[in-house]
């Protein structure tokens, strides 16, 4: 594999992580992290949508007029999200999760990561690297989602993937389940990431 392609795949996962470094796609990422199961489904959905819409937009890149490109991109992304949503609704085990994620599946359309990757990468690159870039960004997003969900489910209900991990004597911390804690936790993850990688610190 040549070096540039490797860079395309590895960069979004750590050095250019969409959530902690580029601060994109925060909107949906925090609300779905109360439980690991929902976070995992969301991560997979976003990865697929980002990858596939980057691929399609990259194929179309020479025929989209610049002035209306936002609408064209939105339609492509919306189509992908509808596909994902219908698949989730149809699956026996995933229907309950789709209900629990409620509007946030639909909000993948306006997830800044998807649009951001199309604008920044897919419109200027060939289809295959665009697909990989989209998928890698989805994975980078999913990684943070899983980390946040891990702490929130463990401390908030004492379980992981619905299985009890902490002893029954543990009193669940209700603050962890509430929305503000997700923000504080994410702030701490960004703190840790930037303390470890000093190049990312803001002046």
């Amino acid at each position: 594999m040549d070096k540039k392609l490797k860079e395309t795949i590895l960069n979004p996962i750590l050095k250019g992580n969409p959530i902690t470094v580029l601060i994109l796609g925060i909107c949906s990422s925090l609300a779905v992290t109360v439980q690991l199961k929902g976070a995992l489904v969301m991560a997979i959905s976003v990865t697929l949508v980002t990858g596939l819409s980057s691929l399609v937009c990259s194929l179309l890149r020479n025929s989209i007029p610049m002035r209306v490109r936002i609408i064209v991109q939105l339609v492509v992304v919306a189509m992908m999200v509808i596909l994902v949503d219908q698949v989730l609704k149809a699956g026996e085990g995933t229907y309950a999760i789709d209900k629990q994620l409620s509007v946030y599946i639909g909000l993948i359309i306006t997830n800044c990561i998807v649009m951001g990757r199309i604008e920044a990468f897919a419109l200027g690159n060939k289809p295959i690297p665009s697909l990989l870039d989209g998928l890698a960004n989805g994975v980078g997003y999913g990684l943070i989602l899983i980390i946040v969900a891990f702490f929130r489910e463990l401390l908030g209900s004492g379980t992981l993937f619905g299985l009890r991990v902490l002893p029954a004597a543990y009193v669940p911390n209700n603050l962890v389940i509430l929305p503000p804690f997700a923000l504080i936790l994410l702030g701490c993850i960004i703190w840790a990431h930037r303390a470890w990688d000093k190049d990312l610190q803001e002046k």
Partner: peptide, 18 residues
């Protein structure tokens, strides 16, 4: 603190406002 500057502290502020 330097690693918390910018986005990090903003997230925590929003959390407290929440």
């Amino acid at each position: 603190p330097a690693p918390l500057k910018g986005v990090g502290i903003t997230f925590i502020t929003v959390g407290l406002m929440g």
